[in-house]
Design a protein around this nucleic acid. Structure first.
Length: 471
RNA sequence: GCCCCCAUCGUCCAGCGGCCUAGGACGCCGGCCUUUCACGCCGGUAACACGGGUUCGAAUCCCGUUGGGGGUGCCA
């Protein structure tokens, strides 16, 4: 294939939808695989949406994912003159005409004529003059078929008959997206239009405009399967988690997100699903994309994210977790946070979390000045724990003589107390549970010894004494 | 209503006429490991929607049915 040129053309809605992100990714993968180019074009036919905030809401998530583009961002709203020119050309050639019927009038006529709802070509020969509030409609063929050759779906035929003469210029003079789409795709030299299946039905209109404008051969089309929720409905802002940025905030890694998104509608031939992006670029192609809708499965995303988190070197893990530990929402004094602590504990934390926002839950007991006891754990390990008081007392005494320079030695000391009491009392005594609850407040957590060393001698002894006094 | 799309384990993907008593992954279940919680490892569960064709042979091709979804705007 000779250097394709694709475009990602989102509407500015204030956030980037995961479905849009998938579309952007597939465009990007296709362009990169074939050594082509990608254009970013913001479909702001409504110019009011062209604010920095709305543009950032598209651009930043794309950058976060690691997707770049070779041209743009272009703005549809900046091409208004060119669109008007195309509309004039269509009107002059008779392919489009003016219409002054309002929504209410159209309804009235339908009712009066017993027709199904919609516009039925009434203004075609009324010779309406242009003016404020007047729209331009495209004259659709009354019969025949429009054929869309789709890379994912094969040949799709649409009868022209049910197509109404649709609006290509609104009453305020702005172009609608069908018109702008055809003109922009043509002018920008787009060779492949890759987008969601929800737009498949609009393709005949765009192609009809394309032909009427004398643009020649239409681009190749590829309509990607929709991303759906558990009920198999198209993901929607109202009922589903669709904002890509929310996933970032919840601690998903961009490389995991991109990897997962690539797998919705496509799979590598060798069945190795978790792999670096450059390998996906190499293996990806549009003709291998599956046409059926794909469920955006949070459980699977979690699995992939946890795999990426586990693979992070300690240094990097600490670095990437930092934003989740230093925010204003942190439940500890800022000066207690130490990036080196996370680096040291990285391995133990990594195997226990799915998202970066879970890091805090494993180490907050070290960072918080006070222990928050989980009463159930306290009761089980300390109140009902065998010889718990003796364990705490002995551990405190021996730890007081240690310098806390070695986690291994701390482990030997605590476990040794358990073994000795087991021997002297003749029953199995577990020393770890009461110590763990005394220090962390909970019954389960990271392997205790390294964190204990990090917590420090003074703090450790204080917490042990506090637990003893609480008994 | 009309138009369009889709249909392999619960989910995602493999299979593009014989290699399929249908493969991988997630999930789920069971076991091993483990003096916390996890990780890890091993094993198991589970699908070609249905009915007709075509063919020596169909999960794979065709038609229909059923089911699901999308579209039907002066949104994109």
């Amino acid at each position: 294939m000779s250097s394709p040129r694709v475009r990602f053309a989102p509407a500015p809605t204030g956030f980037l939808h995961v479905g849009s992100a998938r579309t952007a990714l597939y465009n990007w993968l296709f362009a990169r695989h074939h050594g082509g180019e990608m254009v970013l074009r913001v479909e702001d036919t409504d110019a009011a949406l062209k604010t920095q905030e709305y543009v950032d809401a598209i651009v930043e998530p794309l950058r976060w994912l690691g997707l770049d583009w070779d041209a743009g961002p272009y703005f549809q709203s900046e091409r208004r003159d060119r669109h008007s020119e195309a509309i004039e050309q269509l009107v002059a050639g008779g392919a489009a005409y003016f219409c002054d019927l309002t929504r209410a009038e159209i309804e009235q006529r339908c009712e009066a004529g017993g027709l199904p709802a919609g516009y039925h070509g009434w203004s075609r020969d009324r010779e309406v003059a242009d003016g404020p509030g007047v729209v331009v409609r495209f004259r659709c063929p009354d019969d025949g078929t429009t054929v869309v050759d789709d890379i994912v779906r094969g040949r799709v035929s649409f009868p022209n008959e049910p197509l109404e003469d649709f609006v290509i210029r609104r009453g305020d003079g702005s172009p609608t997206f069908h018109l702008a789409n055809a003109v922009d795709d043509h002018d920008m030299g787009i060779t492949h239009v890759i987008r969601g299946e929800d737009l498949l039905n609009t393709t005949p209109r765009v192609q009809l405009i394309w032909q009427a404008l004398g643009f020649g051969e239409v681009p190749a089309y590829a309509h990607l399967p929709l991303l759906v929720n558990a009920k198999r409905q198209k993901l929607s802002k109202r009922r589903d988690d669709v904002a890509l940025d929310d996933y970032r905030r919840r601690g998903y890694l961009p490389e995991a997100m991109v990897n997962y998104l690539a797998l919705l509608g496509w799979g590598p031939p060798d069945e190795v699903e978790i792999r670096p992006l450059d390998e996906i670029v190499e293996l990806f192609d549009l003709d291998a994309v599956k046409p059926a809708p794909a469920f955006f499965d949070p459980a699977r995303l979690d699995h992939i994210n946890s795999a990426y988190i586990k693979a992070l070197p300690p240094e990097q893990f600490a670095q990437r977790a930092e934003p989740f530990l230093t925010g204003s929402g942190a439940a500890w004094p800022a000066d207690r946070y130490d990036p080196d602590m996370v680096r040291v504990l990285a391995g133990d934390i990594q195997q226990r979390i799915v998202n970066l926002d879970e890091v805090a839950g494993w180490i907050d007991w070290i960072l918080r000045p006070d222990v928050a006891y989980d009463e159930k754990a306290w009761t089980k390990a300390v109140v009902k724990g065998r010889a718990a008081a003796q364990v705490l007392e002995a551990v405190e005494a021996r730890l007081a003589a240690d310098d806390f320079s070695s986690a291994e030695r701390l482990e030997a000391i605590v476990m040794g107390v358990g073994d000795e009491l087991t021997e002297s009392l003749g029953v199995r005594v577990r020393s770890q549970p009461p110590v763990r609850v005394a220090l962390t407040g909970t019954g389960a957590g990271l392997p205790l010894w390294e964190p204990m060393r990090l917590l420090g001698k003074e703090e450790t002894l204080a917490r042990l004494r506090k637990a003893m006094s609480r008994l």
